[in-house]
Design a protein around this nucleic acid. Structure first.
Length: 219
DNA sequence: ACCCAGGGTCATA
DNA sequence: TATGACCATGGG
């Protein structure tokens, strides 16, 4: 049962990977920019986030100290294209204050992942998905990111309960796949890629290669 | 004129 | 614990 299910998760990955190829999320950016992007992309299209990141870059605001030193108005103005700019200015500031209190990114590399994660979640404005994006993509910890796409696609395939809580889903993916940072990163990116490609409004539109694959796996 | 996007917090019951 | 309001821009 569990082995079969693990096989399903792996085979779906193989199918997506073959279909879409490398997605290279945040490949050439600094780790701090990855962390900023993780916060700015909350419920927001990535193209809008890119504009805000470019604003921050132009205004020399891509460092924790620059961000905590900037005024709210200054920061919020640069974040405007990414939406929720007042909220996100506060969240970015809180995150950067926390980062500096921890002793910077350097000091965080020695922390055990579970402790690191709880610490991140204590920062106002950092929820489970943002924390896991940061842990996985910036700090290369083996944490699987669960987003709305993951819930929708995998529940339609009958592999998970859409209403299950975040931690339970995360553990299920991690147990099925085993610790593998590059795979977690690529898998999450592939899920987002697939969700944007496939029909978003009709559940039956998941009746594509993924559903066929699942039937093969289940039989 | 709608709907959605690489969520999270807070108030309410 | 579990919903609902709220945050806000830009593209389809």
């Amino acid at each position: 049962m569990n082995g079969r299910r693990a096989n399903a998760f792996r085979r779906i990955y193989a199918l997506l990977d073959q279909a879409y190829g490398p997605q290279h999320w945040w490949p050439g950016d600094s780790t701090f920019e990855v962390q900023v992007g993780a916060i700015l992309t909350q419920n927001t299209a990535w193209t809008n986030v890119e504009r805000a990141l470019e604003n921050l870059r132009q205004n020399r605001l891509l460092s924790p100290r620059a961000i905590v030193s900037a005024s709210h108005a200054q920061l919020a103005e640069q974040l405007r294209p990414s939406g929720y700019y007042n909220v996100k200015a506060e969240r970015l500031r809180h995150y950067c204050q926390w980062l500096l209190e921890q002793g910077g990114e350097r000091a965080l590399h020695t922390a055990p992942t579970d402790q690191f994660r709880r610490n991140l979640l204590s920062v106002k404005g950092i929820g489970p998905e943002t924390a896991d994006d940061i842990l996985l993509c910036a700090f290369h910890r083996p944490v699987f990111v669960i987003d709305a796409y993951t819930r929708r696609i995998f529940s339609r395939l009958g592999l998970i309960d859409a209403k299950a809580n975040y931690e339970a889903l995360r553990r299920r993916f991690e147990e099925a796949l085993g610790d593998d940072v590059p795979l977690y990163n690529q898998y999450h990116a592939l899920i987002v890629r697939h969700a944007k490609t496939a029909c978003r409004t009709k559940p039956q539109c998941e009746a594509c290669a993924l559903r066929k694959l699942c039937k093969r796996v289940d039989s």
